[in-house]
Nucleic acid binder design. Structure first.
Lengths: 329, 329
DNA sequence: CATAGTAATGTAATCGATTACAAAATAAAT
DNA sequence: ATTTATTTTGTAATCGATTACATTACTATG
């Protein structure tokens, strides 16, 4: 691959002139511009981003941290991020951390090393301490997951309110014994959603029974299966279930099926996230939809603003309850 | 962020010495090494990859092209790629092309621009012409998808044989009227799987009826729903279905459910890919599993070998038929 | 025609690292 | 003590671009 020197030589001009043509900056006479353009074509020249980035000390690359690409929840968010980034001439680098701190470090280093201009983190297991440290010198946005200290700008939804709405819906359709399948409450969203669940119960004077709250370690289908298995063993079984993730809810439905139970007649189920599978289950799953695409766009816009040294404010977007068969009689 | 000059100054040595400590290359005396290491710590210095990469003209970044991260099929492959890459001190850049040629161009340019050292393409819609052109000067591996011309090394499975096995299984359990839900046959794998389907039918002297072959445009659930809807409208309905993707098969199951039909009693169904959700459906889905993790590892190993100028041969890995409820009486 | 003013191009420093080669410091041998 | 060999360190070129500043080539004006 040719470099700028060779192009300059072939065109019979200096490297500066070639660079000017490349960036169509200052005034280059039409005739020399043509000469340079021809030389570029002939040599099949492509400017090296390494050289350019080193000089400009920017990479126009954005890091997007996700714990696992297998979680369909991230799909639309990433689309939003990507479209927005590309519109601003940035590219994104999808980084799957698998919640592995070492892998996380690799990506943090890319930012420190100027190989990326900023980070959007969607990893709830991210080392917040390190991230905050990184945020002192670099642009970082939290998306969907965030930190209460509000040191790092975030975009998310009101998890407490969303959970409240979901549970209220279950109550409205006649349920009084409502279980919660929650993830590990070390995560902020898990604590917030539990709090919304509790608020709804309290508001209608329904009992809050701790055996109806099951915490999973992961968010896989299998965890939902396991949770439901436990709940069905109870003497007093719940009549409805709010799961904080569609994957858990789908696992729960699967286990109900295996036990010959039907939603919503035997047990009504509400999930969270509106992943594409949630419309493929039998019955289809009632769920809370987050404005994922918009969330992605917003996160990207915030990050790019932050990179350009603009002040950035955290944002909470609206959610929506999508009622399907698993809560419709 | 400090640079190597400042470290050198603080340590009272030359930049060369600092660089030597960084790469713990040649012999640096223990005492100066200590001085340098202290300076590095004090200044919180991290070497700039831009400078290093420019000088070494490598980025140690691998591009992984996928059409869409929403397809769960890629999950394990990517894990394999990532683990192998990291073991060799490479990082991967996940690139979602959305089958958009412009986006594809962006990523191709990153390679031409030395911002990435090589590419693993898993995008069946990739512009093969351009890719082959790129392969003249750069390291490229095709994974799962490939090109018959064999100009670019690939790792895949024997699609014809896998389809043959799947259909033979349907025949063995007593089906004679077997439909094929195939994707667009512009894709090589689609042609190969159809060919395996036809071979199995021919071997058992079963009729090959063109109304039992349905081609979808995409691989979404909805396409499977649509396909099944058409097949159920036929005067003579098939008794079994081989779908070339689990997503299609799951859509088909969904539509059967909606019509009050049960697998396998009314219609047996076999999918392809063994995505995690295929074990969550009701009934669970019989499917052809590809050794996805291994495929990813192999692809990464091949690419890294190729980057290091080693000769690389294409490889076909073994598949496995996983029999579940959708074909078990 | 001389000269000022503007447009076009070139020169060379710079970004932050690596490394061949040169030079200095130290150790070993006579 | 001098020479030689070896270890350690420094100097400066290099990777491929951008850009401030200098210089040259035009144009216009009196």
């Amino acid at each position: 691959m040719a470099n700028i020197q060779e192009v300059a030589q072939k065109a019979g001009v200096s490297v500066a002139t070639v660079s000017r043509v490349l960036n169509n900056n200052s005034t280059v006479s039409p005739s020399t511009r043509l000469k340079v353009e021809n030389a570029i074509k002939e040599l099949n020249y492509e400017p090296s981003m390494l050289g350019r980035n080193l000089r400009n000390s920017e990479s126009r690359l954005l890091l997007v941290l996700i714990p696992s690409i297998s979680n369909p929840f991230y799909t639309e968010i990433i689309n939003g991020i990507q479209n927005t980034a590309i519109a601003h001439h940035y590219n994104i680098l999808l980084c799957e951390t698998n919640s592995n701190p070492e892998r996380e470090d690799i990506y943090f280093n890319m930012v420190k090393n100027k190989l990326a201009d900023g980070v959007i983190s969607m990893d709830p297991t991210v080392n917040m301490q390190k991230l905050i440290e990184l945020a002192e010198n670099h642009s970082i946005i939290l998306c969907s997951e965030y930190d209460e200290s509000n040191v790092i700008p975030y975009v998310s939804i009101d998890n407490e309110l969303a959970a409240y709405h979901a549970v209220k819906h279950l109550i409205k359709i006649g349920n009084e014994k409502i279980a919660l399948i929650n993830s590990d409450e070390k995560f902020l969203y898990a604590r917030q959603r539990r709090s919304g669940y509790e608020r709804a119960l309290a508001e209608f004077n329904l009992p809050l029974r701790k055996e109806w709250i099951y915490n999973t370690t992961q968010l896989d289908f299998q965890d939902g299966v396991q949770a439901m298995r436990m709940l069905l063993k109870l003497k007093e079984k719940p009549s409805a279930i709010f799961a904080v993730s569609d994957t858990l809810a789908i696992g729960a439905l699967k286990e109900m099926n295996a036990s010959g139970l039907k939603a919503p007649d035997d047990i009504a189920v509400v999930g969270f996230d509106n992943i594409s599978f949630s419309n493929m289950t039998n019955p289809t799953l009632t769920t809370v939809a987050q404005p994922m695409y918009k969330m992605g766009c917003t996160a990207a816009t915030m990050l790019i603003n932050s990179i350009h040294e603009n002040k950035v404010e955290s944002i909470l977007l609206d959610h929506e309850l999508i009622i399907r068969e698993s809560t419709m009689g």
